[in-house]
Design a protein around this nucleic acid. Structure first.
Length: 593
RNA sequence: UGCUCCGUAGUUCAACGGAUAGAACAAAAGUUUCCUAAACUUUAGAUGCAGGUUCGAUUCCUGCCGGAGCAACCA
């Protein structure tokens, strides 16, 4: 379609130059809306405005001119300022035959000369298991990485693991006090779930202590400060920072459990990483940068010793970079980490942070500071921001245990998939292992699609009661269409695919093919907007078009050999296209369901 | 108070500034001798309010109303 548009643009451009002495080479084409005759529409308002002429008259002249020159255009009609062009069926037939068997239509293989993009996502804390918010983060980050790769970029997937700090010590203290040497093995819990359990125990104990101190006459603030378990946690953090070997080994042991647990969840979600950064290794790096900034007088010290940067000229505020006691803040660490990344991977051109929109301001400040410091790549940083996942009664709060646990949710999704599959009763010939695999593919497919189809800037409302649909605009809808086509194709041979170009197509068949033709544009738009949702919605539209036409037609019974053949070509292309687009969303497809 | 993001059918989501705002769920009515009914076909239903820019606005601008987030020597 792009090629056709380009050649039409040239024709129109020539026409304008010869007849009106006007140089324009950029025209607005769009697919013709359903209720009008035609396939491709040229929007004429901007042209007509420049040469004061009646649109109707102009469009008629232009239309005849185009038809004379381009064989692919059969007819035209004019409505208002829209020139609707009717494309020959053979154009579509040739296209569908050309991309046949190409499961990567529209994708571009990256080469060593392609840009390299680092993308950070996930970035968990090691004191508790992953929740639904992380799922959105992971799916988004992973999907964007696939999309960027499919459009010809080299990708390095990374994360920053927040493996130190007071919150980690909380879990450690609670386990130390009340754990009775409980391990993942002895408890049967996933490592991250076990550690998370002690984080909750800490918070519970902490609150009890605050309450009882308040009864003894403390005000809230001092009660929080003086709660024995909190004092213990702070002491532990100090010991950790001074490299106390006992504390360090406890820390390593518990973090090890968490990593084992995370690995399982990541595997379930189908996401992975090429590199890892640990806060424990990077949290001191930023201090060097502070010295640099001070020398260049980009930063300044206040009398109490704290270090600041003034970003008011950039439309932001003054921001602290080093506390008065000389310790680093979050921003300091992030400065250090990003600089280290560009040192570690000199080939990267840009870096994408997949982080929730509550940190929009933080990243504006981070990027502004890096620009002030003069790093050439500072303009190539991007914050891929996304909305929070909310529950019906508000935001998730892990401290209060008000979360949708990732592992539980995944298990529930599989269960639901199982229940529905069994009710359908179409997979009786699969063995147990194949069935379990299928439940996983469908359950996770539903979850991934549910999350990714929503524009990432918007918040997602997740109602655990209603959970995730399996009917309608859902992952299983896509998967089901794919399985059906696979089943159809398994019943035909290569001889059934005849190449004939003088077949006439049904309007709906043309729409399906047109939809596939727009796939490269969809990819571009998805990259431009960092939005997997665009691909999800494209997929849905494709399957809907396919279903609505082929649901009530028995392709195998079609007597006309050529019509049958073209329908098989279309079916196969749809399946291939579903396959490549689903890859980008990380949605797996079953051959049978 | 300031800044940022979001307001579309009862609900969950769509719509490069384009033509009569698309779907799904829920509701009502249909479609299984047929490649798989997790599907398909009908019916009913929406742009927060007021201005502006434009041939044309859900989309861009201004103001208001409503929701969320940020504005920590928290991470």
């Amino acid at each position: 379609m792009k090629n056709l548009e380009d050649s039409l643009s040239k024709i129109v451009s020539n026409f304008l130059e010869n007849h009106y002495n006007l140089l324009i080479d950029n025209f607005e084409f769009q697919l013709t809306k359903k209720n009008f005759e035609g396939d491709l529409t040229l929007v004429l308002f901007s042209i007509v405005k420049r040469i004061k002429i009646n649109p109707q008259e102009f469009a008629n002249k232009l239309g005849s001119y185009i038809i004379d020159i381009n064989q692919n255009i059969k007819k035209f009609n004019v409505v208002g300022g829209f020139l609707n062009l009717v494309i020959n069926d053979s154009f579509y037939v040739e296209f569908i035959e050309k991309i046949d068997k190409n499961t990567e239509y529209g994708h571009k293989e990256p080469s060593s000369a392609s840009p390299t993009i680092m993308i950070e996502y996930s970035s968990p804390n090691t004191n508790k298991p992953l929740h639904l918010g992380h799922i959105r983060n992971n799916l988004l980050g992973f999907s964007i990485s696939r999309i960027l790769k499919a459009t010809g970029n080299n990708i390095i997937k990374t994360q920053i693991i927040n493996d130190r700090g007071i919150h980690i010590c909380k879990s450690m203290v609670a386990w130390y006090n009340f754990g009775n040497n409980e391990t993942p093995e002895s408890s049967g819990l996933k490592g991250d779930q076990l550690v998370g359990k002690y984080y909750v125990i800490f918070e519970k104990k902490f609150n009890e202590e605050i309450n009882s101190l308040q009864k003894d006459g403390y005000d809230k603030e001092s009660a929080i400060k003086n709660a024995p378990i909190m004092i213990q946690a702070r002491e532990m953090l100090k010991k950790w920072e001074s490299n106390d070997s006992k504390i360090r080994s406890l820390w390593k042991k518990m973090n090890g459990w968490v990593y084992d647990g995370f690995a399982i969840t990541y595997n379930d979600l189908g996401v992975d990483f090429d590199s890892y950064y640990y806060e424990s290794e990077t949290y001191l790096l930023g201090k060097k940068i502070i010295d640099q900034g001070l020398n260049k007088e980009i930063f300044y010290s206040k009398p109490d010793g704290s270090v600041w940067v003034d970003l008011r000229n950039e439309g932001l505020d003054e921001k602290i970079l080093l506390r008065s006691d000389g310790t680093a803040v979050y921003m300091t660490q992030d400065l250090g980490t990003v600089i280290k990344r560009f040192e570690d991977f000199p080939q990267i051109d840009s870096l994408i942070y997949t982080v929730g929109n509550e940190q929009d301001y933080h990243f504006k400040v981070l990027f502004a500071i890096l620009k002030k410091l003069g790093y050439s790549w500072a303009d190539n940083l991007y914050h891929l921001s996304y909305g929070m996942v909310d529950l019906p009664d508000g935001k998730m709060k892990s401290r209060e245990g008000k979360v949708v646990d990732a592992d539980n949710l995944i298990i529930e999704m599989r269960k639901t998939a199982k229940k529905i599959s069994e009710k359908q009763g179409k997979i009786n010939d699969l063995d147990n292992k194949q069935r379990e695999n299928l439940y996983n593919v469908i359950g996770l497919g539903a979850l991934k699609y549910f999350i990714l189809k929503v524009d990432n800037r918007k918040r997602i409302l997740f109602n655990p009661e209603e959970s995730v649909d399996f009917e309608g605009n859902t992952g299983p809808f896509i998967q089901y269409a794919y399985a059906r086509i696979k089943s159809l194709l398994s019943k035909v041979s290569d001889n059934d695919f005849l190449k004939k170009h003088n077949v006439s197509l049904d309007i709906k068949e043309k729409e399906i093919i047109k939809q596939i033709m727009t796939y490269p544009d969809v990819l571009n738009s998805s990259v431009k907007n960092y939005s997997p949702a665009i691909i999800a919605n494209y997929l849905y539209e494709l399957v809907r078009l396919y279903n609505s036409f082929y649901q009530n037609i028995n392709i195998l019974n079609e007597v006309n050999k050529e019509a049958r053949s073209i329908r098989l070509f279309i079916s196969r292309s749809v399946a291939n296209n579903i396959y490549s687009a689903s890859q980008l969303l990380g949605i797996k497809l079953p051959e049978k369901m």
